[in-house]
Every structure is written in C-alpha cells, then in structure tokens.
C-alpha cells in the first residue's frame, strides 16, 4: 500500500482513466465544483485578455470616473485616470495569477526542499534546518515581505519573490512530518538496501507519497499570495507598470469613499480567485482521501 492510487495519478498524470476518477470525485462535491467553475472562469479571463482587449490596459481611453453600467463601451466603468476597468480586470487576471503561482512555486521549492532534507536525514541537518525554519517563522511574514519589497523596490519580480520567500515555513514543517512517517517504511528501507541514491529515494519514492498535502497547500499558497499582493499594493508597494488586481485595489483606495467601485471591482476579483482556490483546495483534500488538513 505504498502507492495509494489517487496519489500516483496526480503525480504522473499520464493514466487517463484514474485521473478522471479524481476529477469525478472532485465534481461530486458541490463546493469543489463551484471552485472549479470559478477557477475556469478566471483562467478564461486571463486567456481572453489579449484577444478581447488588445490595447494597453493602462491607456487612458475614457472619461475619468465613469461608473459601471453608464457607458456600454466600458461596462465596468473607468478609474480616476480614465482607464477601462474591464480591460484592467482581464489583463490583471494574468498578472495576479502569475504572481500567485510563481510566489507559490518559490515557497514550494524552498518548503519541500527543506522539509524533505530535514525529515529524510534527521540529526544535525534536521536540527539546523529546523532552526532556520523557526527563524523565518518568528519574523512576521507580512512585515518581512514588506521590508524586502521596500528595500529592493517594488516590481513584479520583487513582490513575487518577497511573498514566496516568506511563506514556506509552514509547508516545510508539514513535508518534514510526512517524510518522517515514510522514512522508515518498508519501501524506503528496501530501496536503501538496494543501494539507491538518497536523491533518487527522495524524488522517486518519498515525495510522490506526500504529494496530497503538497497539492492542497499549493492552492492555499497561491490564494494567500494574491491576497498579500493586494495588501502590499494597499500600502503603496505595487508595480505601476503592469495591471494587477492588487495594484488596482491599491490605486482605488483613495477614492473608496467617493467611487467605491474602483477598488471594489478588483477586490471582488481577488475574492473570487481566493475563494476558488480554497474551494479547490478543500475539494482536493477530500478527494485525495485525507480526513482533515491542519494548517
């Protein structure tokens, strides 16, 4: 029972029949279905941004402060400089998802790396890596990313990196705990006795088996990265050269009392994305047959 079926399936993703099994299990749950639909819609927006709005979404094309629904050409209205909010939302989907996914990837790489090494080798390596993890866990993560962005100056790359580099400690601990469980399993012991290299054992035998919690964590990481980006933008640390939902919320915060929609429309987009990712995470969690997910 070293390879519970659902895990392999999502690991290699080649077997078509079992993959549908996972999908079927997801679709059986209404909340997961909701998440899936929402996520599909957001992805569609990202893909359709260029075909639908070929021009630069930063262009000032309309009169400033067109409220939504007053001009058919600009269904979501325009912001304080007369930029089309609908174009911003579509193009922003690309950037916000990009920030979310890349930040999550950064966290995943660091978190899995440290967690796996720590759990597999134990001893001094474990102790050292866990001190490092504690170190990162004690510094308030948002404040830490704030400091990094302020120091390196806000741009898409620094914002993404700063969010990613502060979000991994929880994941590292999770992976370490799972790896510890597997470290002394028959399969791993057998591989060792067969002379397999450590790297091979970790990559081929251990990690695929801890994929379930990782997949679930990944969806949450993407969601919280999108939220963090908007918080940074609210404090004035956004990248003014690209449109992201967080940046749009940040730009609209000054007029939130007079023109609520400028910050609220991208805010709703963020809410939808975070919601979708969490619903998906929950759904995956259940579908991957785990009883509960501790964070």
């Amino acid at each position: 029972m070293a390879f519970p079926d659902s895990l392999i399936l999502s690991a290699d993703g080649t077997g078509s029949h079992p993959r549908f099994a996972l999908l079927r299990r997801l679709l059986r749950r209404p909340s997961a279905l909701c998440g899936l639909v929402l996520m599909a819609a957001i992805l569609a927006m990202a893909v359709l941004a260029h075909p639908l709005y070929p021009d630069d979404p930063l262009d000032m094309v309309a009169a400033p402060f067109l409220h939504p629904g007053t001009d058919a050409a600009f269904p979501l209205g325009s912001d304080m400089l007369g930029r089309d909010l609908a174009a911003g939302i579509f193009h922003g989907a690309r950037i916000s998802l990009l920030i979310g996914v890349v930040a999550a990837l950064v966290s995943l790489v660091i978190g899995i790396g440290i967690g796996a090494l720590s759990g597999y080798y134990g001893g001094r390596i474990d102790a050292g890596l866990m001190r490092l993890t504690e170190l990162f866990q004690t510094i308030p993560p948002f404040l830490f990313s704030l400091a990094i962005v302020a120091i390196l100056q806000p741009s898409i790359a620094t914002i993404t990196g700063a969010i990613g580099i502060t979000a991994w400690p929880g994941l590292a601990r999770l992976v370490r705990a799972e790896v510890l469980k597997l470290r002394h399993s028959e399969l791993v012991e057998a591989s060792i006795s067969l002379g397999a290299s450590d790297a091979r054992i970790i990559l081929l035998h251990i990690l695929p088996n801890v994929l379930a919690p990782i997949v679930v964590s990944a969806s949450i990481l993407v969601a919280s990265a999108i939220l963090s980006e908007s918080s940074l933008a609210f404090l004035g640390l956004g990248d003014p050269n690209v449109v992201s939902w967080g940046g749009m919320v940040g730009a609209g915060r000054e007029v939130i009392r007079t023109d609520w929609y400028v910050a609220t429309i991208p805010g709703i987009a963020i809410l939808a994305a975070v919601l979708a990712l969490n619903l998906l995470g929950d759904g995956l969690n259940d579908a991957l047959n785990r009883k509960g997910q501790r964070r």
Binding site: L58, L81, P154, G236, P240
Partner: peptide
Amino acid sequence: DDYRRTAEFIKQALHKIGVEVTIRS
C-alpha cells in the same frame, strides 16, 4: 497617489510619441 498618477500620466503621454517609459517606485 497624486504623484504616482502623475507619473502614470506622463508614461502614457510619452508612449503616444513612441517613447517607452518604465516607472520605478
């Protein structure tokens, strides 16, 4: 924000005459 929006305004204005501006904050 007033200064950031001024910078965004200048960026778009210069874009129109073929000068690409990257805003740094």
